[in-house]
Design a protein around this nucleic acid. Sequence first.
DNA 1: TGCTTATATCACCGCACAGTGACACTGAGT
DNA 2: ACTCAGTGTCACTGTGCGGTGATATAAGCA
Lengths: 203, 203
Amino acid sequence: MSRSSEQTKKKILDALEILITREGFTGVGVNAVAREAAVDKVLIYRYFGSMEGLLQSFADEKDLCPGAAALLENITDGASLPEIAARIVVSHGMALQRSPLAQELLCWELTEQNPLSILFGKEMEKRELKALADKGIVPEEDVKILTVIMLCGLQYLILRGRNDNPMMNIDYSVAETRDKVDKVIQSTMKAFFEAREGGNNAS
Amino acid sequence: MSRSSEQTKKKILDALEILITREGFTGVGVNAVAREAAVDKVLIYRYFGSMEGLLQSFADEKDLCPGAAALLENITDGASLPEIAARIVVSHGMALQRSPLAQELLCWELTEQNPLSILFGKEMEKRELKALADKGIVPEEDVKILTVIMLCGLQYLILRGRNDNPMMNIDYSVAETRDKVDKVIQSTMKAFFEAREGGNNAS
DNA sequence: TGCTTATATCACCGCACAGTGACACTGAGT
DNA sequence: ACTCAGTGTCACTGTGCGGTGATATAAGCA
C-alpha cells in the first residue's frame, strides 16, 4: 500500500463524487465518504479540516458539470441573437441531462447552502454569461429574463424527471420529447425577438 | 389536559407543518416532530404507524399550497388562450411565492420520493389542467410544452431565491423584478401564439 | 543502522436517531 | 365500584453519526 497523501486525497474526493451521484447529497457525511474511499475518516479531518473543507476542495478541483464548457464553445458562430439564446439554453440542458452529478448538485443548492452548492451556482452562471461576453453581446433585460426562465424551466424539467416523476408527463430524457422541447424553445425565442423588433412589445 | 386522540393527531400534523416550514425537510423525523408537538413519539407510531404514514396523512388532510386554488378560480374569464396560459403560470408563481411550505415540498420532491412529495406534485398538476379542462380547452402539444417550461422556470426561479441565492440576480421576491418577469411571460406567450397563427412556426 | 516525520489505524466519546415494551392514567359503560 | 379499552408516560435498545486522542507503521534522511 503506497503512502502518498496526494493519492489519499484523490481517493477521498473521488469517493465523494461517487457517493453524491449514487446516494444523493443527503447520504454524504464523513463516515460515508471514508467508508466509500476505504480510508479512515480521521484522514478527512487531517487533509480537509472538516466536511465543509472537503466540499470546498471538491468544488475547487472537480469538473462539476463535465461537457458543459465544450458545448458552449462555438455557440455564437454565425447565428442571430435568438438562435444564440436558444442554443445556450439547449446546450445547458444537454450537459445537465448527461451529468447526474450536476443534477444532484443543483438539488442540493436548492435545499441548503454549503461551499459546494454556492460555488457551483456561480460557476454555471459565469459560463453562460461568458459565452455571450466573449462576443461583446450584452443582452437587454427582457431578453435576459426570458433566457433565464427558459434555462430554469429546462433545468427544473430535467431535475423532476430523475425519480420517474416527470412534470406533466414531459420526460426530457426521452429523445423525442427532448426534440420537441428544444424546438419549442427555439421557436419561442424567435417569436419573442420578432415581436420585439416589430415594435409589438407588450406594454 | 384533554385526552382526545383527534386533538393529538392534529397537534402532530400541525407540528409537522411548522417543522417543514421552519427547518426544511431534512430536519423532519419522528423525534423532531414529537418534540415540536410536545407529545411522546410513541403516539406518532400508534396513530400513524410510522413516519411515512404521517406524511401520507399530512398529504391527505392539509392544504399543501394555500391560495393556489383560489387564484386559478376565474382565470379563463374573457381571455384569449395566450392570456390564459400566462395567467396560469403567473398565478402559480404568486401562490408558490407566498407559501414557504409549498416551496419546501417542491424541493423535497426533487430530492427523494415519499408519499407526501409524490401526491403533492400530482395535485399541482391536476389543479392547473383542471382550470383549462373546465372550459373545454385542450391545448396543443407545443402550447402545453411552452406553458410547462414557463411554469417550471418560474418555479425554479422562486426556489432558487430562497436562500439569498437568486438565479442570475433575478430575485422574484422583489416586486419590481416580479413585475418584469410576469410581463416577459405574458409577452412571450403572446408572441408565440401570434407566430403560430401566422403560420410562421419554426421548422 | 537509527532517527524523525508524515501517514495511517484503532479505540473511543457523546449525541441524536428510529423503534419498542412495560407501565400509568382517564373515562365511559356496566 | 369495577372493568376495560383508549390514551399518555417512561425507560430502554441498537444503530449511526461527527469528532478526537493515543498508537502503530511506513518513508526519507543522517
